[in-house]
Every structure is written in C-alpha cells, then in structure tokens.
C-alpha cells in the first residue's frame, strides 16, 4: 500500500483531522505549549477542566512521582468560565485543531449551565464532560462512579447543547461497562476512557503523605493496561465511539488502544516528559498503517484478534 493513509476520524458528530488529542489537565489551555509543540498537527486540544466559577485547587504538594507515572491532586484549579471565554478561547479558536472544552460541576445544574453557556461560544467544537476527577470533594467521582448519576449528568449536558459531547469515565468502579452503557444511551457522541486511578504514596522519612490532599489520581504508563482493558471491555459491549487515554508514550501505545477498540487517543502525562509527544507519534502510526496494508486509521479500530 502506498500513499498517505487517511488519518481522519469521526466521534459521533465530531470530526478530527487525526486521532491524536492532548488530554485535559496536561496541556493547560494550549497556549502554554505554543512555542514548544507544533500545535497545528494535533487532532484536538482538550482544555483544562473548566467550572462556572474560578477554583483555587488543592494544597501543595500536588504532584508526587511514582513508578512509571505520577500522582496528582491539583483539584481542578481553573480560572472559571468567564476568564476562559474572554482570555483563553480567542486564541484557541484561531488554532487548527478542534477545541474540546472539559467541563466540571458540583451539581447536575452546574454542568447544564456550563454546557449552555459554551453552546453559544464560537470556536468550541465539543465538550468533554468530566465526571471522573478523583481530587474534588463534590462532583467528579460522585457522579462518575454511579451509573444513574452519570447518566443524569450526561443527559443534562446533552440537552443543554447542540455541540458534540464526550464523557470521560473513571476506572475507579467495579463495572465500567454498566456506566458506559447508561451514559451512551443518553445519545452522547463518544466516551473517553480513562481518567486517573485513585492512588496514594507516603514519604516514609517524614511519615506524611506525599500529596497535600493525601489521595490523588495516578496517571502515566503505570495505568495503561487498566485503560486498555477498559477500552476493550466497553468496545466489546457497546457501539459508541471510544477515545483511549492512559499512559500513552509512543505510537505503539496508541495503536494498542485502537486495536482494543478506540477510534482516537489522548496523550496526557507523556507531554510532561517530552512536550512534543502527541504530534511526534503521528508519523509512527502512519508508518504502521502503511506497513500493515491499511489505508485509513479507522481500520485499526477494534481490529484485535482474540480467536485462534
């Protein structure tokens, strides 16, 4: 097979030039990496989680390095919707990649109001609903770990906006398929799997937790097998478009998620090690497609063989 493979992907009504996005919370509002990353080559930028009102976040230390990953307890520090609309969005909307705004609320109504306000915002291509942050007392996991509450948020956002809606799920549950099924039934455009795993680390010399908030969310390659499993299980059970996220550092990892059933992927913690990771893995995916005789990246989706 010769020629460039077709890298375009579709997540419901959201169309992307290529399947590689940067994950929420690891790329700020994009401009932080303006000078370091060829941003125009990203499939999408997913913003830092946004709430209606500004949030100060959690006490320090907020970061603890762990084997093959890190714990964070940032606590959704963000400048709030109005600052986003005034100061962040004008730059973002001039960029080539799709702009996906990650939204977070402490009540169903807050999610709906955020979605309605962003529905009217020019340059916002889609919303990613965060019902999976482990670092906040109210909201986050309390919605994402309960199928009924998760569906309630998804339905509220769905009816508040005509824009494509992705919902980011937590792995901190017994049966992620049950939650995915209820959320998908709300008519969302795709599911993002997975947010961080709840974790903890202790400084044995001080006898204190290594995070100010004691417990945080684990990300990085340490969680990749958990994320691949989650994508695989949901892909086996449901027909909804999936975005794989969790510890992707190289093109091989992205292909792994796609074989398990993801149409697109998000790069998170790896950006901290190497700012250009998300754009640098694209040629590797393209080369793999050519070498395996595939003409489009969509052909990888769910191509896993489990039989004899």
């Amino acid at each position: 097979m010769s020629g460039q493979p077709d890298m375009r992907v579709r997540l419901g009504r959201l169309e992307l030039d290529n399947p590689v996005m940067v994950a929420s919370g690891t790329f700020g509002f994009g401009r932080e990496y303006e000078q370091l990353v060829a941003i125009e080559r990203l499939g999408a930028i997913v913003t830092k989680g946004l709430s209606l009102q500004p949030r100060p976040g959690n006490p320090a230390p907020r970061i603890a390095e762990t084997p093959a990953g890190l714990l964070n307890s940032i606590g959704l520090e963000n400048p709030g919707l109005q600052v986003f609309l005034d100061d962040k969005l004008p730059w973002l909307r001039r960029q080539r990649p799709a702009v996906v705004v990650n939204i977070f609320g402490t009540t169903v109504d807050e999610y709906a109001r955020l979605a309605a306000r962003l529905d009217a915002a020019e340059g916002v291509d889609a919303l990613e609903v965060n019902i999976s942050c482990p670092n906040v007392e109210r909201g986050g996991l309390t919605f994402g770990a309960d199928a009924g509450a998760a569906a309630e948020v998804a339905a509220a956002v769905r009816s508040a906006t005509g824009k494509p809606v992705l919902v980011k799920l937590t792995p901190n549950v017994t049966d992620i398929v049950a939650i995915a099924r209820r959320v998908a039934a709300c008519g969302v455009d795709g599911l993002v799997l997975i947010n961080t795993l709840r974790g903890m680390a202790i400084d044995i010399h001080s006898g204190r937790p290594r995070l100010g908030n004691v417990i945080g969310g684990l990300s990085g390659p340490a969680i990749r097998p958990v994320a691949v499993r989650a994508v695989y299980e949901v892909a086996q059970a449901l027909d909804v478009p999936l975005v794989g996220c969790g510890g992707i550092c190289g093109w091989q990892d992205a292909v792994e998620f796609m074989l398990a059933g993801a149409r697109a992927v998000q790069i998170g913690s790896a950006t901290f090690r190497r700012p250009g990771t998300a754009v640098e893995i694209l040629p590797g995916i393209e080369k793999f497609l050519r070498q395996t005789g595939r003409s489009s990246v969509g052909e990888l989706c769910g191509a896993l063989e489990t039989g004899d």
């Binding site: 700020g28 932080e32 990496y33 320090a60 907020r62 964070n72 950006t271």
Partner: peptide, 28 residues
C-alpha cells in the same frame, strides 16, 4: 522551588498561594 511536572505552566502542580491569597505558578 516546588515540585512540578511540566515546567511550562500547564499542569498547575507547582501552584502556591501567595501572601495576598492569590495563586501563582512557581514555573511561570
């Protein structure tokens, strides 16, 4: 100094509260 993951202002891992109560990123 502070622990930080990105160094570019994106991760908000190194945020400190200043004397006036506002947040500031050590890296940025």
């Amino acid at each position: 100094e502070n622990r930080m993951a990105c160094g570019t202002g994106a991760c908000l891992g190194c945020t400190l509260q200043l004397a006036g109560g506002e947040n500031a990123r050590v890296c940025r």
